[in-house]
Simulated assay, not measured.
Amino acid sequence: MTAITALKTKDLINVGIYSALYFICMGIAEGATTLITGLLLPGFTSIFVPGIVGLLAGPVYMLLCQKVPRFGAITIMGILMGLFFLISGHFALAFIPYALCGLVADLIQSLAAKAEQPKRGLRLLGYTVFTFGSMGPVIPLWFMKNAYVASLVKRGKSQDYINTLFSHITGPTLFACIAITVAGAVIGAYWGGKLVDKHFAQGQGTNRG
């Protein structure tokens, strides 16, 4: 059983490193999705981005769980990702989902770290919850349209941009976004766990979480 203890200086350094790697995965996911959907499915970028983030960032999350099996690490990473949304000009409330999802995922991971039996399912669940934090910038598209439009106008976005952004924001696309996010997270967690177990698990002993 892995003891859940206070984060140490080395742990905080590792959290910073893995947060930077996760940030890079987010950037790649957003850039690639914007390019592909811009060519093939204009207006659908926001629906696909969270799922692509989940698909690409799985190894980073699993490696963080492996290297820093202590409560607080995932919460900090979630807060850092939320702060990135906040300072990069996204809708103000985009910070909240990553912070909350990070905390819940951390609680799930703490259960996984203390489990005697294999805990791959708990890690997968935790990562899926964490990935929903990446929906922070897009959730207001469905539930806070007027405030979101006002924020876009304040940022100097054109009416054509706003119309394109909202052209496919409907009830069915909300469920599609959720389904794509879950699918991306599950696949990302699966291949991320396999990759970490293959290349980083040896010699970890009881610290595997």
Rank of each mutant, 00 (worst) to 15 (best):
N207Y: 07
K10S: 13
L7S: 03
A6I: 05
M62P: 00
R120W: 10
T173I: 08
G43L: 03
P97L: 05
A29K: 01
A176T: 04
I74L: 11
I28Q: 01
T2A: 14
L152M: 15
A94T: 05
F166S: 04
L55D: 03
F175C: 06
I74Q: 04
D160Y: 04
K198S: 15
K145E: 15
D160W: 05
P137G: 01
F132C: 13
L56I: 12
V182D: 00
M26T: 09
G51R: 04
A179Q: 15
V182F: 05
P50V: 08
G27A: 15
L55V: 02
R155C: 13
I139G: 04
K198G: 09
T5S: 07
N146E: 15
G43W: 00
T131F: 00
P140A: 10
F166T: 08
D197S: 03
I108Q: 04
G82K: 09
I13D: 03
L100V: 15
I87N: 02
K198D: 02
K157Q: 14
P50T: 03
P140Y: 06
G78R: 00
I180Y: 10
L12C: 10
F84E: 10
N207C: 05
L35V: 07
G51Y: 03
P118R: 14
L141E: 11
P140R: 04
L56C: 06
T128R: 01
Y161E: 13
F166V: 09
